[in-house]
């Protein structure tokens, strides 16, 4: 008796809530990581062939910015309670697909099934952690200011707008979730360049987001070559902020050059972790501080006189 021939998935981009191929028609081969090996995006994921991923172009990146911009006001105007529930819903749907994610993370990162499962569980829990922040952050980082005069004066955080994210190169799912969730929980939308060599869990995350009440365009996922897309996003005038976390271990990417390009419209820049010029990927297992949320917030202060 012959084994059943498996139905394999086509891995596509996730833009504006849809799953297009790259407008360029390009794709690239994605391989499994050697067991417990760190990869660089120069292509040291040299294991078995996994799939062809779409290789997004600069035009795809621009389309994604358009989708993110279109979705941003509506997402920001949703109540914090609503956004919190949507993020929690992502965790719920992810839990249901965790077996698939464990397989994909194990292949992408060269992990044992047990370690991959731990990583997936942590990623799910991270959504839950950030979900809870949605309706608390404004109280923690905002508040009444006791000005010396007859005025009501209050400061509250607002989302910066459209955020470009270079997702971490090593941690294909936990790292990815750890950079997306804090950006969108406050009402930003994002354009994410996924791990170059380990893009497949990101595509599956896109499918999860599409079925988790996250409005189309809130998260846009681009698989492909980081060095190709990053400069266009860094200099894009309709992008308000950029997270350079994934510059660590990305080949042919100079985070300093990207930061310089971001000055074109004074984007808020989150530099990669590390000392001096070196960029290193953080340890995603640790519970984060608030900075991944607050780096993409603007403080608005409103004054009004008091009187009779």
């Amino acid at each position: 008796m012959s084994e059943r021939v498996e139905v394999r998935k086509t891995f596509k981009l996730y833009i504006g809530g849809a799953f297009p191929r790259s407008e360029s028609g390009r794709s690239y081969a994605v391989h499994a990581a050697p067991r417990s090996g760190r990869s660089t995006s120069s292509g040291s994921n040299t294991g078995a062939f996994l799939a062809n991923a779409a290789m997004a172009s600069r035009k795809d990146a621009r389309d994604a910015v358009v989708a993110a911009r279109k979705a941003q006001p509506g997402w920001a105007e949703a109540t914090a309670y609503n956004r919190g529930q949507v993020l929690y819903r992502v965790a719920e749907v992810m839990q249901g697909r965790s077996a698939q994610l464990v397989d994909e993370v194990a292949a992408a990162e060269g992990l044992s099934a047990a370690k991959a499962a731990l990583s997936v569980d942590t990623a799910i829990d991270r959504w839950v952690w950030y979900a809870g922040w949605a309706d608390k952050l404004a109280q923690v980082v905002g508040g009444l200011n006791p000005v010396a005069g007859p005025f009501f004066n209050i400061s509250a955080p607002e989302p910066t707008g459209v955020v470009a994210i270079l997702a971490p190169q090593q941690s294909s799912l936990l790292g990815l979730v750890s950079v997306i969730a804090p950006v969108i929980v406050s009402g930003n939308t994002c354009v994410v360049v996924t791990s170059q060599d380990r893009p497949l869990p990101a595509v599956t995350l896109g499918e999860i987001l599409a079925t988790s009440d996250v409005p189309g365009g809130v998260v846009n996922l681009l698989t492909g070559v980081t060095a190709e897309m990053a400069p266009w996003l860094a200099s894009h005038r309709d992008v308000n902020a950029i997270d350079l976390t994934g510059a660590a271990d990305a080949s042919n990417v100079s985070w300093g050059e990207l930061e310089a390009a971001a000055a074109t419209n004074l984007k808020r820049v989150r530099r990669p972790a590390g000392e001096a010029e070196a960029a290193v990927e953080p340890d995603w297992r640790l519970t984060p501080d608030l900075s991944r949320m607050t780096d993409f917030l603007e403080t608005k202060t409103v004054w009004h006189p008091k009187g009779r």
């Binding site: 005069g149 004074l266 608005k300 409103v302 004054w303």
Partner: peptide, 29 residues
């Protein structure tokens, strides 16, 4: 889209009140 909004007043400043801009008006408070 502005860092300080004055309603029925204008150009009020106070050390307890964060001041700073959105967009190309800069960053930080």
């Amino acid at each position: 889209r502005a860092g300080v909004v004055w309603a029925n007043t204008f150009n009020q400043f106070d050390p307890t009140s964060p001041f700073g801009g959105f967009k190309e008006s800069g960053y930080g408070r």
